[in-house]
Simulated assay, not measured.
Amino acid sequence: MRFIRYSLGDELPRYGWIYQDHVGLVEGDIFNEYRRLEAGMPLERVKLFAPVRPGKIIAVGRNYVEHARERGAEVPEIPLIFLKPPSSVVGPGEAILLPPQSKQVDHESELAVVIGKRGKWIAAEDALDYVFGYTAANDVTARDLQKVDGQWTRAKGFDTFCPLGPWIETELDPADVLIHCRVNGELRQVGSTRDMVFSVQQLIAFISSVMTLEPGDVILTGTPAGIAPLKVGDVVEVEIEGIGVLSNPVKAL
């Protein structure tokens, strides 16, 4: 099933679900108790927002061997985790804004995991029971600032640096999912989650041994090789097999 956050006209965003390219309202809490109303509104008539408002975003660095190699970095022996602020989230069609502080902002296409229930010290074999669903993400990164700072908060934390969407897909096996990134229609990245150093289950187990995971939290699982700079006027598309395409234009701040 696919869940969205959407609005009609000037209305506030609300949760909905998709059935055969039509949208139905969801009443209640998608992470607890909810009721799906009839899907009668054509999807093309609604405005999509980021499908979740995360309390925290936990991202994983160098989780693909070839990406680590293209960065000239070692593959971590344990998951390399960092945080992106919720203020970095934007939805489908919203602009990625290039900040004046950076001269090189790169795209990073990623599978994102949306947590569905609270958990701490989650065993790997139970990890998928804590997943609500999956969406596409772009871990936008100011690469030059990442190198200068030596830690990643500023480089990863600018407003608009975490596009999510277009919706949450609840029926997906994350073990072998193709990931593509295109910029202006040109293929930049292609990979599969089967090539991740640490699987979704291992990441959830590791992260939950550090911090409690809450419903709506998002885990970015790492990017395949092929990262490259973005420039004003670009349109970057992250496509996740079984989910769909997340598209964002690039503009100057």
Rank of each mutant, 00 (worst) to 15 (best):
D10E: 15
I122S: 09
A124T: 11
I243P: 01
A124Y: 15
V197S: 01
Y15T: 05
V131Q: 12
S102F: 03
I204D: 00
E108G: 03
P42V: 11
K47P: 03
I81H: 01
Y19S: 15
G226W: 00
G226N: 07
I204P: 00
E11M: 13
G233F: 11
A73S: 13
Y15I: 04
E74Q: 14
P224D: 05
I240L: 09
A127C: 12
I78P: 00
I243L: 11
L25G: 06
G150F: 12
F161H: 06
R194N: 04
Q151T: 11
I219N: 00
L111V: 10
E239I: 10
L111D: 05
A225L: 03
Y6S: 00
G233V: 06
G216L: 08
T170E: 03
G16K: 07
K120N: 05
T223R: 06
S88R: 04
I81K: 02
R69K: 14
A39S: 13
P79I: 11
R69F: 15
V245F: 08
G24S: 15
L25D: 12
K47H: 14
G244M: 10
S208A: 04
P51L: 03
K117W: 09
A175C: 05
I78M: 12
E125L: 07
V131D: 10
V89E: 02
